[in-house]
Design a protein around this nucleic acid. Structure first.
Lengths: 350, 350
DNA sequence: CTGAAAGCGCTAACAA
DNA sequence: TTGTTAGCGCTTTCAG
C-alpha cells in the first residue's frame, strides 16, 4: 500500500510488481497479456513478484488505456423469468470461455426503459450488446448506431437489425402450434396473452390469428391474463375461460408459465385436461414435460440462442464477422398429453 | 471524434463538452455529479452542450480517477436456478435505486471455482460483494480480507462472517419442517438431497436428521437425487423411493424443484399424494402453491434477502454501517395439501 | 525482447 | 462558484 497526494490509499500496482521483479511495468504487462513475447527468466521473476506482492490486475485502468472493457452487455425484459435464464446461461458460458465478462440489465418490457438502460450501460463502454428483442425507440437505435458498438439482437426477427441478428420467428412458431391444434381436431381455440404485450407477444398472437384464419375457424378469441406472466395469472384466466359459453375446446398460451397455471387451475376446478379442454404453451420449459398431463409446447432452443448470439457478438468485436450477419433459429412443436397426444409427438420446423 | 497519437479514434469527451459550453472540464464533471454546486446558467449551458455533442459519460475513466467503480458483484452458485432469481432481483432493484450496477458470476457450487470467480471480479474493482453462502476456501477469504472490499454473505448462517451477514438457518428451517411432518403423524420420512451438496444443502440434511433424532424415529434415511437440482432428478429419485419396502410415508426434499419432480412422478406412477405418500419441499417457490395437490414447503424470503443484503452492502460502502453487521431472516413452514393439510396451514418461525 | 514516454478521460485537492 | 494541476494504473507507440 502506498500513500499519494492527499492521502489516497491504493493497492499494489503493476509498477510495484515491476520494482520487485526488477523489470519495467511494460514487461509485467506483457507477462500478463502476451506471455510468449517475454523471456522465460523474466517471466518467472515477474510471476514470482506477482505472487509475492498479491498483485491484482486492474481492469479499470486497462480498459481506459486500451479502449476495450472486456465487457459485453445483455439487455433483457426481465431477469426474474425462467424463460430467459437459459439464454442468459448461453451468453454467459460463451463469454466466460473468451475471458469476457457479462453485465445484465432489464427493461421490464418497456422500450423507454430499454433506452435508459442502454444509455446507462454505454457509460461502462461495453465492447458489445446482446439485446433480446428487435423493437426499440428511435433514440435507442440512433444511440447504438452512433456508439459504433456491435449489437446482436435476438428472440425475435426482423429484416432490418441494428447490426446482427440471431432470429426467432414467434409468428411462425405460434402459427405452427395453432395449426397443430387444428390438426388435432380442436375448433374453439382461445389464445391467452398478457395485458402489456411486447412485440414478441404480439407476433405470437398474430401467428395464432393467422392459423385460425387459414383454418377458416371464424373469429379468433384472445384473452389477456393480467400484466405479467405468472402461474397465478394463468390460474385467473383459466377461471374466466371456464365460464365461457360455449366453452373453448383448447387454450393456447403465450408461454409455458401461463399454460401451467391454467392447466393446474382447470384440474382444480374439476375440468379435465385434455378431455374437457386442451392446453398448450410456448417455450419448452423444463417443467412442461413433467406435468400431469404433460404440457404441449413449442420448444425453443433458448440456451443455443444465447450461445449463438454471444458467439456472433464476439466475432463482431474481434472484427472477424461482418455487420448484418443473421441466423434464424428453429422451433419444435411438442404435442404431448395436454392436447390429447397419447404419446409424445414431435414435429420439427424451420 | 478526434484523432490522437497513433491514430486512435475516440468519442466525445468531457473536454469536448467543456469547450462547446465555454467552461472547464471540471465544471462539466460537477454538473454531472454535484449539480447543486454549479451556477444555474452554466449548468444550462453545459447541459445544452452535452445534448448537442451527444456526450456519453465515461464511467471507466471516472472509476479509475475516483477509485470507485459503482459496481457491486453478486456471487451465486448458479444463475440458471429459479431458487436464486428472486434474490438476484432483490439485489438488482436496490442497486438500481442507488445508481449502482450489479455484476453477477456463478460458482457452480464449487468453492474452488468461487475463488477464481472472485479473483476475476476483483480485477474490476467492485465496490462490494454479495456472496451466496458462507463456505469459502481459505484463499478466498484472505483475498477478500486483503482487498478491503465490503462483503455481505447470505443464504446461510455463521458466527464468523467475512464482513457482514444476512443470515438464514437452513438447519433450523429444515428441522422445523421435519418436526411439522412428525406432528402430522408421518413416521417414515425420507430426505432427498443432491450428490454434490454444498453447505446449505448439508445444513438442511442435518436439520432433517436432528428432527428425526429428536422425535426418536430411528435412523434417518437420505437419498441423493443426482448431481443437480431438476425436476428430472426428482422424478428419478421418486422411482427409487417407490420401490423401497416398507415404503416411506413422507418425502422431504432439499428444494421445491426436486419436490415437484417427485410429486408429479408419484402421481404418474399411480401413487397418490398425500394418501400413499406425502411430499414436502423447501424454498417457497411460486409454483408450489399451484400444484395439485399444493406442495408443502418452507417459505424463504428470497427477494427480501437479496434486498437486505444489497442495502447492508451499500451501507458498508458508504461507511454508514459497521463491519460485522448481522441480520437473520426467518422462514415459514407452509403445510399444504401434499402433506395432508386439508386447508393451507401456516406456522411462523424465527 | 525490453523500456521510456505519452497518453486514455476523468476527478481530488487546492487555488483563485 | 469555478478553474488549474496532478495524477488514477494501465497500454500504445516507438526506440533501442
Amino acid at each position: 500500500m502506498r500513500q499519494k497526494r492527499g492521502g489516497r490509499a491504493a493497492g499494489v500496482t503493476m509498477e510495484d510488481v515491476a520494482r520487485v521483479a526488477g523489470v519495467s511495468a511494460m514487461t509485467v504487462s506483457r507477462v500478463l497479456r502476451q506471455p510468449t513475447l517475454v523471456n522465460a527468466d523474466l517471466k518467472a521473476r515477474v510471476e514470482a513478484a506477482i505472487r509475492e506482492t498479491g498483485y491484482i490486475y486492474n481492469l479499470v485502468a486497462s480498459s481506459l488505456a486500451s479502449q476495450r472493457s472486456g465487457i459485453i452487455a445483455l439487455i433483457l425484459p426481465t431477469v426474474a423469468s425462467s424463460i430467459f435464464t437459459d439464454s442468459v446461461k448461453g451468453v454467459s458460458d460463451v463469454a466466460r470461455t473468451h475471458a469476457v465478462q457479462m453485465i445484465m440489465a432489464e427493461t421490464n418490457y418497456s422500450p423507454a426503459e430499454e433506452e435508459k438502460v442502454i444509455e446507462a450501460l454505454l457509460r461502462r463502454r461495453p465492447d458489445g450488446f446482446v439485446i433480446v428483442g428487435v423493437s426499440h425507440t428511435r433514440a435507442t437505435r440512433a444511440l447504438l448506431e452512433k456508439s459504433g458498438v456491435p449489437v446482436v439482437e435476438t428472440w425475435d426477427s426482423t429484416p432490418t437489425p441494428i447490426d446482427s441478428l440471431v432470429g426467432l420467428s414467434n409468428f411462425d412458431a405460434m402459427k405452427a402450434m395453432t395449426e397443430a391444434l387444428v390438426a388435432q381436431g380442436f375448433r374453439r381455440i382461445v389464445f391467452v396473452g398478457t395485458a402489456t404485450p411486447d412485440r414478441r407477444a404480439q407476433m405470437r398472437a398474430k401467428g395464432y390469428e393467422a392459423g385460425i384464419a387459414e383454418a377458416g375457424l371464424g373469429a379468433p378469441l384472445i384473452l389477456n391474463a393480467g400484466d405479467l406472466t405468472s402461474m397465478e395469472s394463468g390460474r385467473i384466466v383459466a377461471e374466466r375461460i371456464a365460464a365461457l359459453r360455449p366453452r373453448p375446446d383448447a387454450v393456447l398460451c403465450l408461454n409455458d408459465v401461463l399454460a401451467a397455471g391454467a392447466l393446474l387451475a382447470f384440474q382444480r376446478m374439476g375440468i379435465a385436461v385434455p378431455a374437457d379442454i386442451a392446453v398448450a404453451g410456448f417455450g419448452g420449459l423444463d417443467f412442461s414435460s413433467h406435468l400431469n398431463p404433460s404440457l404441449s409446447t413449442v420448444d425453443i432452443p433458448r440456451y443455443e440462442m444465447g450461445q449463438k448470439a454471444a458467439e456472433m457478438l464476439l466475432g463482431r468485436i474481434a472484427g472477424t464477422a461482418a455487420q448484418g450477419g443473421t441466423c434464424e433459429m428453429g422451433y419444435r412443436i411438442m404435442l404431448r398429453e395436454s392436447t390429447g397426444g397419447s404419446r409424445p409427438t414431435e414435429a420439427k420446423a424451420s
